[in-house]
Design a protein around this nucleic acid. Structure first.
Length: 420
DNA sequence: CCTAGGCCTTTAAA
DNA sequence: ATTTAAAGGCCTA
């Protein structure tokens, strides 16, 4: 494989799946730039391309740097701080097992769901990247947000290296997005109304003093590469979560939810709980938040839900929230797959009957219960190979249906409330 | 303080 | 086939 930069060997970090599960953590909607290729995760990160894979006991990683290093003759090991970078990125100083125990103790609902979703961890992302990506997230879905994030890197980020035919670029700086043509270009690229938000926010941030955004960090969670303040200027009073949140809201395209995402995933405010439509649904369905006075979701409701979770889960409420959020996403995806699988089986059954030209097939045209259709498929095998295929489909479908039923039960109460 | 409507684009249902 | 709704919201009136 052709690589234009310098590549490190595989290294490893002892780490259990309870402490970190990259499969869930990297695709639960926190970060939008990781891509999975076979069993490896790959992403450009702070000037290098990082590849990750995980087994029972270790996180394996390697990194690729650009060729234009300060001293090309120097051994890569002297400057490769990827181990420390990942330790910071995954915030591994926290004992996740202990946190899960604490949250389970405080909340029976968490306790029930958590065992299936271990190793979900809040990433310590670059604040600027989080800010722009979550501006993109409004009224949007994960796959489209991801493609937008990649376009930003592709057109505005510094080139890092090429692997095969794929070029890797870093996430763009604010300055790189201040060009007057950015807004119209991003619109052409399909960003929609978010193009303006991004352009405006880039201008605002670029006009602030350097380090302004990271100045909103939780002091207990310093930025990557930040030098510990030597003799700190005593007039700089520490920022609070609420203050940081308020500052972010003043930016373009940033409301309470996006501000909380940046606080939690970019600025180290672990008590921040972003309330999006999913979390709001969880709050209504599982935490009795349905009977508020106002029907629509107001700022007051937003704060009330956040405060409730902060009281329930404590200091690291944002982390606990992400576990439940992940659980809901997975259940939702499973139910969706189930629906697809059912359609597929339907189609197969239909095709088989067409092949035979048999007439006794009322099941496919009439709206009936899916369970009955599955039975119909099972009883309809005629040739050997067809029988096998049908049997496999049934097995897969039963799992899928189970997931769908489970999700439906969980969401029923909410649908009822909506109907009134 | 609360509410309604509009906004870009894509996808899946209806 | 067209239309509607929803997808991890925000902004303006």
């Amino acid at each position: 494989m052709a690589i234009s930069g310098r590549i490190s060997q595989w290294k490893k970090l002892p780490l259990t799946l309870t402490e970190l599960c990259i499969d869930t953590t990297l695709q639960c909607g926190q970060s939008f730039r990781w891509r999975k290729i076979n069993d490896e995760w790959i992403c450009s990160l702070r000037g290098r391309v990082v590849v990750l894979k995980q087994d029972e006991s270790c996180l394996h990683y390697k990194s690729m740097f650009p060729n234009v290093s300060p001293s090309p003759s120097k051994d890569i090991r002297d400057e490769d701080n990827t181990d420390k970078m990942l330790y910071h990125y995954f915030d591994l100083k926290h004992d996740l097992g202990a946190l899960y125990e604490q949250w389970s103790k405080a909340d029976p609902i968490f306790k029930k769901l958590a065992p299936q979703f271990g190793g979900v961890r809040i990433l310590n992302q670059d604040a600027w990247e989080a800010l722009i990506c979550f501006i993109c997230s409004s009224n949007n879905n994960i796959s489209r947000i991801s493609s937008m994030a990649h376009k930003l890197c592709k057109y505005y980020g510094a080139f890092i290296t090429k692997i095969g035919d794929e070029e890797y670029h870093d996430f763009p700086t604010p300055e790189a997005l201040t060009n007057p043509k950015v807004e119209s270009h991003l619109r052409e690229l399909g960003f929609g109304y978010r193009a303006q938000y991004i352009a405006n926010t880039a201008k605002i941030v670029a006009s602030k003093p350097p380090g302004w955004l990271n100045g909103l960090r939780n002091p207990e969670s310093p930025a990557w590469g930040a030098k510990p303040a030597l003799d700190s200027d005593s007039d700089a009073k520490p920022v609070t979560y609420k203050e940081a949140h308020g500052e972010l809201i003043s930016l373009s395209g940033v409301g309470p939810k996006v501000a909380d995402c940046v606080c939690l995933m970019g600025l180290g405010w672990s008590e921040s709980v972003p309330i999006d439509t999913h979390v709001w649904q969880i709050a209504q369905r599982d935490y009795k938040f349905g009977k508020t006075k106002t029907k629509t979701f107001t700022k007051a409701t937003y704060d009330a839900v956040g405060d409730h979770f902060r009281e329930l889960w404590g200091k690291q409420a944002g982390w606990a929230h992400s576990v439940l959020f992940t659980a809901d996403l997975k259940a939702f995806a499973k139910a969706k797959d189930a629906a697809k699988e059912v359609m597929k089986v339907k189609k197969e059954a239909e095709e088989e009957e067409d092949e035979d030209g048999s007439v006794d097939s009322p099941a496919v045209k009439v709206e009936v219960k899916v369970e009955e259709e599955v039975t119909a498929v099972e009883e309809a095998p005629r040739g050997r190979s067809k029988r096998k295929r049908a049997a496999t489909a049934v097995v897969k479908t039963e799992d899928a249906l189970e997931a769908k039923r489970e999700y439906t039960v969980r969401t029923r109460s909410q649908k009822k409330a909506k109907g009134q």
